[in-house]
């Protein structure tokens, strides 16, 4: 087995295109995970038992089943029900839905850490429920959530190769397609790993710095 620079150069443009798709899938997926996660957290804390209970269990259901199975479901099963999704759309919905069950726990913990006295002060000043959330609770709850949410972003980034299973040509799949047609695996796969490291190591370092910054403030 010998490293060939010409293979490496040959595959590089495809990998670069794949990396862009990977980053896009990560960012859009994360956006879905954050928005859905926040909604899920609020539902889980609902004073209405049925709402709290059903959102808790649907979240558990999604969390305790594999992302790969969920992606297959979205892409290959939903068309039987007449719902056709583009591979990329199915991918970011799956990724976002799956990770929203994790981020919802981050949101829930952050919200529950806002002291009861803050809610009572808002009520004594006659804030509506929406005003209380928007102007009192979330501005206090969100800053400490940023480091764990950044960590989930990195995790999602590393999970994107699963989208290859539903034909998304992201970084890994770009390499895989090349490898399968040229029977060259060493260079493409080494480069895929390197690309992931090049992004995730600085990102992880940044997340640690964020975490320290918020710990100092607290």
């Amino acid at each position: 087995m010998e490293w060939s620079w010409s293979v490496a150069y040959d595959v590089m443009p495809r990998l670069a295109a794949g990396l862009i798709v990977t980053v896009q899938a990560t960012l859009v997926g994360a956006l879905v995970a954050y928005v859905l996660g926040l909604a899920l957290a609020i539902l889980k804390m609902s004073p209405y038992r049925l709402v709290a209970w059903s959102s808790y269990w649907s979240s558990e259901f999604v969390r305790r089943t594999p992302l790969l199975v969920q992606l297959y479901f979205l892409f290959y099963v939903l068309p039987d029900l007449g719902i056709f999704l583009e591979p990329f759309a199915a991918g970011v919905i799956g990724l976002g839905l799956h990770f929203s069950t994790y981020t919802s726990e981050v949101f829930r913990a952050g919200i529950e850490n806002v002291p009861k006295g803050q809610w009572e002060a808002a009520r004594s000043l006659n804030y509506s429920t929406i005003q209380t959330w928007r102007h009192v609770v979330l501005p206090q709850a969100i800053p400490p959530m940023i480091p764990p949410l950044a960590n989930y972003l990195i995790t999602m980034f590393k999970e994107t190769p699963l989208l290859a299973a539903i034909t998304v040509v992201e970084l890994f799949n770009a390499a895989n397609i090349y490898s399968n047609s040229h029977y060259k695996y060493l260079e493409p796969m080494t480069l895929v790993g390197t690309f992931f490291l090049l992004v995730s190591i600085p990102a992880a370092a940044l997340a640690i710095r964020l975490e320290n910054a918020f710990r100092r403030k607290a």
């Binding site: 002291p115 006295g117 803050q118 009572e120 002060a121 004594s124 000043l125 102007h135 009192v136």
Partner: peptide
């Protein structure tokens, strides 16, 4: 009605 709390509860 307005209230001042033992723990201040400023934002």
């Amino acid at each position: 009605v307005g209230m001042v709390f033992q723990q201040f509860n400023l934002f």
